[in-house]
Amino acid sequence: MTFCPEDFYELGKKLKNDNNYIRFDEARKRTSASRVYYSLYLKLRDELLRYLLGSSVYPQLSEVAESGLMHSCLLEILKKVDLQSSYKFGSLQELRKKSDYEVDISVGDNEVEDAIAIYEELSRKIPDLLKRVSNDVDRKNSRVREVIQRYYERKHKRRKRKKNGWFN
Rank of each mutant, 00 (worst) to 15 (best):
L53G: 09
E26R: 12
R139L: 12
P59E: 03
I148V: 08
V57M: 03
E120C: 04
A27F: 12
K125T: 01
A27R: 10
E94N: 15
L75Y: 12
S34Y: 09
R161S: 14
K14C: 11
L69C: 00
K16M: 11
K13Q: 14
D46W: 09
S106K: 13
F24I: 07
D100F: 05
S34D: 05
D104K: 13
Y21Q: 09
S123L: 08
I77K: 00
T2I: 13
I116C: 05
G68F: 03
N17S: 13
D136S: 00
K160Y: 08
K43M: 10
G68V: 00
S142Q: 04
D46E: 13
Y119L: 05
D46N: 14
I105F: 13
A33I: 06
L95R: 07
K80I: 01
S55E: 01
R96H: 10
K80G: 04
Q84T: 11
L92H: 08
D109L: 14
F24K: 13
E63Y: 06
F24Y: 15
E111T: 06
R45Y: 02
L122I: 10
V36S: 01
K79A: 05
K14S: 15
A65Q: 00
V137P: 01
L69D: 04
E63I: 06
E120L: 09
E76V: 01
N110L: 11
Y101P: 09
S106C: 12
F24D: 13
E66I: 02
N17D: 15
V64T: 02
Y152T: 00
S34W: 08
N141W: 11
L69R: 01
D7I: 12
T2K: 15
R23D: 14
L69W: 02
E102F: 10
R139D: 03
S34F: 07
L95E: 07
R158L: 06
S62C: 00
K160I: 03
R159D: 14
